[in-house]
């Protein structure tokens, strides 16, 4: 038997409560219960990174996390990345470099790259590629994605604190 569980968490700086079954993934909770559809379901098994969100400061695959495991955690999703003042510098650079084609992988790449730049504001190309190894782009847009991330680093004078 399983019944719905009451979960209290914080998403994009706001306290959020929801009910979910233990078998619902965090991705399903975000998309189906909370209408936060920015995180995408690609493979639903941890291979593609399209569902990447930030939990307690670390990028994780929300499809490989249960909704009940959000209890007491601090979570960021793509919906909280831009501010009323404008896009996050990474989002801006993705636009400028046309670092997307179909766009399904983009929220995952942005969330993962955001933590990279907060951890290592001035990464080398190798470090960017290594960090983004868990995000797939099936339109094969990797080069533009790497350029966009590198163009957002400190050397360009662009703030990454967005």
């Amino acid at each position: 038997m399983s019944r719905k569980v009451h979960v209290q968490t914080q998403i994009n700086g706001e306290n959020v409560e929801f009910l979910c079954e233990p078998r619902q993934s965090m991705l399903e909770v975000l998309r189906n219960e909370l209408d936060l559809t920015g995180a995408k379901e690609g493979c639903n098994n941890g291979n593609c990174g399209a569902c990447t969100i930030i939990v307690e400061g670390r990028p994780v695959n929300s499809c490989c996390m249960l909704g009940v495991e959000a209890e007491g955690k601090e979570i960021q999703t793509i919906e909280g990345v831009a501010t009323p003042e404008g896009l996050h510098p990474l989002q801006q650079k993705f636009l400028e470099h046309a670092a997307l084609q179909c766009g399904i992988c983009t929220p995952g790449f942005i969330m993962n790259a955001k933590v990279l730049l907060e951890t290592n504001p001035n990464p080398t190309e190798e470090e960017v590629r290594f960090w983004l190894a868990g995000n797939l782009c099936r339109c094969t847009g990797y080069d533009k994605i790497i350029r966009a991330v590198l163009d957002t680093t400190e050397t360009t004078g662009v703030s990454t604190n967005g």
Binding site: G46, R58, P59, V60, N61, C64, N112, F130, A133, G134
Partner: peptide, 9 residues
């Protein structure tokens, strides 16, 4: 092991 996201959990 696997990808950064998976190593994080």
């Amino acid at each position: 092991v696997a990808s950064p996201q998976i190593r994080n959990v």
